[in-house]
Design a protein around this nucleic acid. Structure first.
Lengths: 109, 109
DNA sequence: GTCAGGCATCGACACACATCAATGTCTAGT
DNA sequence: ACTAGACATTGATGTGTGTCGATGCCTGAC
């Protein structure tokens, strides 16, 4: 998969400035409590996808705010977006999350 | 080790607000290009520790800025601090990084 | 065509944060 | 004691970002 395909783990050799900037979008995307929970909600949902209508109800935040966070996760490559009729479904991109785990020195399942 | 010991992977079940807040310090600490590189520099250095004097020279940033970032990483539990004479050494805390990897659904080495 | 509802975009605001110069604190020499 | 050097702390400043209300765009139903 290797959606980001960046570099060896941070614990192995020093990250260059360019490599760090490559990983930043992923890290900044999940470095917010609401976005991390959104990602978790989508990832752990049935079939690995969830409707925005359900996600809105899971937080005491305005609809534009949730929409904004989902856009951030989508642009980072962590969530895929698909419109089906009136509803929009977000799906987890396991590859992107796996890349991040590997950069941090872990082993992706 | 389990320095943070928080929760099952984000991909398994939805993270609660409290669980998300628990992981945030770790994520926010590495969600900055300079700090991620600092962490990588320390982690990949000989014996897993590095002197601040060396870290200062690795960036074109002022000394207070580097000091500030190292403090952030230290307070997040990712780096241990030890003063030896005039010099200060920072050491990687592999446990904290491992916890983060596990929360993200990876397997820590 | 019209209307209602789901979601995105826009503009504005408040707060957080990265950065620096100046200063403080500690240690080892001399 | 005095000095020089290594790091930390402080205060100030500019930029980034999370949040919301208002508005716009689609889609399906009538």
């Amino acid at each position: 998969m290797q959606a980001v395909a960046c570099c060896s783990p941070v614990t192995r050799e020093p990250l260059s400035a360019e490599q760090a900037e490559t990983v930043m979008p992923l890290l900044k995307a999940i470095a917010d409590p609401v976005r991390l929970r959104l990602l978790s909600l989508v990832a752990s949902h049935t079939d690995g996808e969830a409707c925005v209508c359900d996600l809105n109800d899971a937080f005491e935040l305005s609809q534009p705010t949730i929409s904004h966070h989902l856009k951030q996760l989508h642009e980072a490559g962590l969530l895929d977006r698909e419109k089906r009729g009136v509803w929009v479904y977000y799906r987890i991109n396991a590859g992107a999350l796996g890349d991040l785990v590997r950069v941090l020195g872990g082993v992706a399942p």
